[in-house]
């Protein structure tokens, strides 16, 4: 087992690890907000379907909610950038 991974382990560089970390940060960080945005949009659509007159308010509120959910992904994106560009 060790013989299998040893060459890989020896090849690991700082840049390679950072690339991996960037990808993981962006990819993992997209899961939660993706689900959250889907739920928010679905809820808003249901609400609009039930009460079409409130569409203006609902749309604005939906965008605000989506923005809050998306902020999490954006933070992970920023973290990813910071790792990738060796800022931290």
């Amino acid at each position: 087992m060790l013989a299998l991974f040893l060459p890989i382990l020896l090849e690991i560089t700082d840049a390679g690890l950072r690339l991996l970390a960037t990808g993981l940060a962006v990819g993992l960080g997209a899961i939660g907000p993706g689900v959250g945005i889907g739920i928010a949009a679905a809820g808003a659509l249901q609400a609009i379907g039930r009460n079409p007159e409130a569409e203006g308010t609902l749309r604005t509120t939906m965008f605000i909610g989506i923005a809050f959910a998306e902020a999490l992904f954006i933070i992970s994106l920023v973290i990813g950038f910071m790792i990738g560009f060796a800022i931290i």
Partner: peptide, 8 residues
């Protein structure tokens, strides 16, 4: 000397 970054 900047730290070498992979994305640049």
């Amino acid at each position: 000397q900047p730290v070498e970054s992979p994305l640049e």
